[in-house]
Write a protein that binds this DNA or RNA. Structure first.
Ligand SMILES: [Mn+2]
Ligand SMILES: [Mn+2]
Ligand SMILES: [Mn+2]
Ligand SMILES: [Mn+2]
Lengths: 221, 221
DNA sequence: TAAATTATTTTGACTACTCAAAATAGCGCA
DNA sequence: TGCGCTATTTTGAGTAGTCAAAATAATTTA
C-alpha cells in the first residue's frame, strides 16, 4: 500500500496536469507539496522505481496507469469526504479542504462506498469539482471562466477552482457559489478588472485573476 | 502535535492500565502495538523525555496527565467513529474496529463535535465501551462478567471487551449484543465451561475465558 | 557565441520509527 | 549464596522522508 506521502505526491501530479501539459515540473510539484525542490526530485526517482510515475530528467514527471489509478482513488476520497462534511455535517465549505486532506488517506473503500450511497452518488463536490467514479473515470469538462466568457450573458457558476479558505470565504460572502447566476457587465483588461452583477442586483468588481478561478456555463432557457 | 505512532502508544497504555495496575509492562505494550520489546523501550524513553509518560526502568510505564489527556482524546475519537460507522453507515460491528484504528488519527476536534451531535451524544460505543467525554472524563464502571456473575439470574449484557472480528462475529451470531438479556445456567470450572440461555430460549456453551469477555448487569424489575 | 540567470539534481546530514541480536538486571529456586 | 530463567534494555543497522547547500544542466540575455 502506498503511504500517505506517496498518495499526496500522486494526487498533486494529477491535479497539476489537469487540463495543462502532461509533464509536471519539479518546481511546481515542490510548491504544491510544500517541500524543497531537491526533496521532490529524490521522491520522484523513488516513485519512478516503484512504477507510479515516469520521470523525464530535467523535463518533468507524469503518472503511469498505476499511478493514475492511485491518484484518482485519493481524489475521489477527498471530494466525497468534502461533500459529506458540507452536506451531512453542515461544515463551512471554506474549511473542509484541510480536513479532507487528512481523511483522504485513512478512509477505506468500504466506508467510501457507504458514504457515496448516503450522499446519493454526487457528481461534484461542494466546490463544483468533479468526483472521479469508482471505476476511475474523471469527468473533465472545459468551462469558460468569468475572465473569458461572453459579456452581458446570463451565466450559472459551475465550479470554483481554488481551495484556500480566504478565497472560498470571499466567494461565499458574495454569493458566488456553484449554482448561483450572474452576468459579467464589463472588463477592463489594462486595469485587470472584471465587473459582475449577481441576480440579487449586486454589483461587484473582481481582478481578472480572481475571475479566472470562477467557472461558468451559459444559462440555457 | 503527537504523531499517530505516539497516539497509538499512549492510547494502548491507557487501555492496558484500565482497571488493572497502573504500571504497564514493556512486554504487554509491545504485544499490543505489534512491535518487538526493544522498540517499545526505545519509544517509551522518547515519550518520557517529551513528558507524555513516566518510565520506571524495569518496572513499567504510566501516563502523565498530559499523556492521559492525549490518550483520552484518541480513545474518544476511536469510539465515536465506531458508533458513527455502525449507527449511521450501518457497517458490521465486527469490522469497524480496524477502520476506527486509522480514522482516530485524522479526525479533527471540529468534525468530532459534529459527529457527536449527529449521533445524539452517545455514552457508549456499539460494543458497550464507554466514550470519554469532551472534557476527558472516562466513565469507568466495574461490571461482573458471564464468568463471575451469579447463576440463574436474569442479566443484561452491557459490554463486550474484545475487539477481534472473529469474537465479535461469534457474539453477533449468538445474539450476545449489548442490551441482550440472558441467564447463566451453570458453570463447570474444571472443564472450563459456562452454559447460558438467551431469552429466545437458546442454550449455549462458552469457555470461561470467552465468558469473561462479556460483561453484564443484573436485570432490575 | 559566451556569459548570466534559473531550474534541477546531487550530496551529506538529520529525525522518526523499526528490527535483530547481544548484554544486563531481577527474579525464583536449589 | 549462587544459578538459571525471563523480561528488559542496549547496540548496531536499516527505511522513509526531509532540508541545506553545492554542483550541474538548460535557457535566456547580451
Ligand atoms: Mn492529503
Ligand atoms: Mn473541493
Ligand atoms: Mn490507531
Ligand atoms: Mn469499541
Amino acid at each position: 500500500m502506498p503511504s500517505s506521502t506517496v498518495e499526496n505526491y500522486l494526487k498533486h501530479i494529477l491535479l497539476l496536469s489537469e487540463g495543462a501539459q502532461d509533464l509536471v515540473s519539479m518546481g511546481d510539484l515542490a510548491v504544491a507539496l510544500a517541500v524543497v525542490p531537491g526533496t521532490a526530485t529524490t521522491m520522484i526517482k523513488a516513485l519512478a522505481r516503484e512504477g507510479y510515475v515516469a520521470h523525464q530528467p530535467r523535463q518533468g514527471v507524469s503518472l503511469t496507469p498505476t499511478g493514475r489509478t492511485v491518484a484518482l482513488s485519493v481524489l475521489r476520497k477527498h471530494r466525497l469526504v468534502e461533500t459529506f462534511l458540507v452536506n451531512v455535517l453542515k461544515m463551512d465549505w471554506a474549511s473542509v479542504h484541510a480536513e479532507a486532506e487528512q481523511l483522504e488517506h485513512s478512509i477505506s473503500d468500504e466506508v467510501l462506498d457507504r458514504l457515496d450511497a448516503l450522499l446519493g452518488y454526487p457528481a461534484t463536490d461542494p466546490h463544483g469539482d468533479p468526483i472521479p467514479s469508482r471505476k476511475g473515470k474523471l469527468n473533465f469538462q472545459v468551462y469558460a471562466s468569468l475572465a473569458t466568457c461572453a459579456l452581458k450573458q446570463p451565466l450559472r457558476i459551475v465550479r470554483i477552482t481554488e481551495q484556500t479558505t480566504e478565497f472560498l470565504q470571499f466567494a461565499d460572502q458574495n454569493h458566488l457559489l456553484p449554482g448561483s447566476t450572474l452576468i459579467v457587465t464589463g472588463r477592463n483588461l489594462p486595469a485587470g478588472l472584471a465587473t459582475i452583477k449577481t441576480t440579487g442586483t449586486r454589483a461587484l468588481a473582481l481582478s481578472i485573476t480572481a475571475a479566472g478561478k470562477i467557472l461558468v456555463e451559459p444559462l440555457r432557457r
